[in-house]
Nucleic acid binder design. Structure first.
Lengths: 317, 317
DNA sequence: GGTATAGTTTGGAACGTTCCAAGAGGAACA
DNA sequence: TGTTCCTCTTGGAACGTTCCAAACTATACC
């Protein structure tokens, strides 16, 4: 009625109502409205890890685009725990969000499928098997190849990879690393150590590398946070970057761009991915599309100060 | 009824209902429930700036505590624009959140008061004039004094301050800087330049300092982001930190802790502040308290690598 | 003045819950 | 067998909206 600026109300009563609204401090109840309209204009977002600045960019993109389209955004986090993630998704669904964005979810496929049965779902940064959901991912294979090729061009051959555990895209990045190494004739140099998409994971990875020489001349870490952890551990061990060892991350977060970190990294546009996810949801909500769509954004290489030519090799032993 | 595990239902029909729920994929509608219960169990959070990692910690604390207490959290951001912030707050209110947390809001006091008329409001990181809201702040005066005292103890006298503009606590930090300088007999050394709580703001501040010599021997930046911007600009100008100039920030964000940034900073516990804010809201929602409460957390000094003794002074000119 | 016609107002029903009162069964007891 | 008491089930009202149909009120035209 009046609050929505509709026609079919006389100017006089519109005026009267507006005054009453003002006087009584009336505020429309969106829950009641959603109940009868059977849509909430709320988009739910489940973020697996809020501490990773990559998701900061994603969230900003989502917010931004959602605002433009007139949607509210409801965030929930899973703190990298599948059980909590599932809970978070269920809460969002019970709140009757119109659509769901899952940013790097770690829940099992059936959980995603169950959510998708209720509302449109866009999965960010994870390959999805089912075709009932849309996805926006980064070409992790290609990104990993870019990283390896960059290091090889600098002259490296002994390039190790610190894996990202259950992190988003981690498995594929590892696969990309392996393939790129093999394609460049370095299959015998492949070396993958355990890590995680956290600083701690990077530190752990480097400790593993230091524990069993020879030390590689370059390290490719599964994401920036992990790379920064690796940086810490390398420096602690008295190694200079990039003189003694080169390092490259993935995500090109704001962290990597800090002048004092200046980490070479693979750029993936988190903000754009967030915006795209909202667009995919909006299309489905408008009924413009029913077939699933899988967007793949192309990563690019950003060279900064942590990658350089390999050392002469006094350290190899 | 059954979904809430209540008594007063026979085991047989409970079983039958449970089966039907499973079969039909029934999911309770929280909007309908909220409508009749006249409470949503949702806490609204308005974050002024998502890009500042300090708020990452705050949000994590809020989420964490809210989950423990059985609340959902609905986030919205204002992107540091008062008009957008007001809009974000209004949306949250229309959604009938049970309580509202405003993290470093930039809206005018009347806007806060109007929100507080509808639901309990906790303001984070900003001094509030009205006594209809609770607040959780950091003792910015004391924090600023800690920073200044630390630099003075190192031997500095020419200590400049890069202001935080309209940022949270910025005005008070500037005041704290002034008072501490005066108290230490350095009133004639007080020097405040314009900046902002962003990297760009820090760069701007340093450019202003470089433009009108003599260069101070130390800089206190209004927050970490600002300090990092200052770091970038100083290094660009060929100055070494801390040999040529010392630098200290505020917030002790995860950024400052990065080994490669290693910024001395004033610690304020964002996570704890977030948790406290949720507790204040919960108290009011439980009707345990009606008088307003203003918590002040005590900041502490964290010394890292960006602060050291002043240069001999070949640069003073 | 009557009648069509548009514009406006009014009154339900519906959305999916919760909560309460009233009704329906049984078991225990005299 | 009837009474009482208890447990469980059933039925409605309410929450604050939207949407639709029906009733009302001017206005214009013949």
């Amino acid at each position: 009625m009046v609050t929505r600026g509709e026609r079919g109300v006389s100017p006089a009563s519109r005026q009267a109502i507006l005054e009453a609204i003002e006087e009584l401090g009336y505020r429309p109840n969106l829950m009641a409205r959603s109940l009868v309209e059977r849509r909430s204009r709320i988009l739910g977002v489940m973020i697996s890890d809020l501490r990773n600045p990559f998701f900061g960019a994603v969230v900003a993109g989502i917010q931004d685009r959602a605002r433009e389209l007139g949607y509210q955004v409801l965030f929930n986090t899973g703190e990298r725990d599948p059980a909590l993630e599932e809970e978070a998704i269920e809460s969002l669904l019970q709140l009757r969000v119109d659509g769901l964005i899952l940013a790097s979810p770690r829940v099992d496929d059936p959980v995603v499928a169950r959510a998708a049965a209720a509302v449109p779902v866009v999965v960010l940064n994870r390959e999805t098997s089912g075709d009932d959901t849309d996805s926006v991912t980064n070409d992790n294979l290609r990104g990993a190849r870019l990283a390896v090729e960059h290091l090889v061009q600098l002259g490296h051959r002994a390039i190790a990879f610190i894996a990202g555990g259950a992190g988003a895209g981690a498995r594929i990045r590892a696969e990309g690393y392996r393939r790129a190494m093999a394609a460049l004739g370095l299959a015998d140099q492949i070396r993958v150590v355990d890590g995680a998409h956290t600083e701690e994971g990077g530190e752990r990875g480097v400790r593993a590398l230091l524990a069993s020489p020879p030390l590689p001349t370059a390290i490719f870490a599964s994401n920036d946070l992990c790379a920064i952890g690796a940086m810490n551990a390398l420096e602690e061990a008295g190694l200079r970057i990039p003189q003694d060892i080169s390092l490259i991350g993935y995500d090109n977060t704001s962290l990597a761009a800090l002048r004092h970190v200046s980490l070479s990294s693979i750029h993936q546009a988190g903000g754009d991915m967030g915006r795209s996810a909202v667009d995919r949801l909006a299309e489905r909500l408008a009924g413009e599309r029913t077939a699933s769509r899988h967007d793949v954004v192309t990563p690019s290489l950003v060279v900064r100060s942590t990658s350089g030519p390999p050392r002469g090799d006094g350290l190899a032993g």
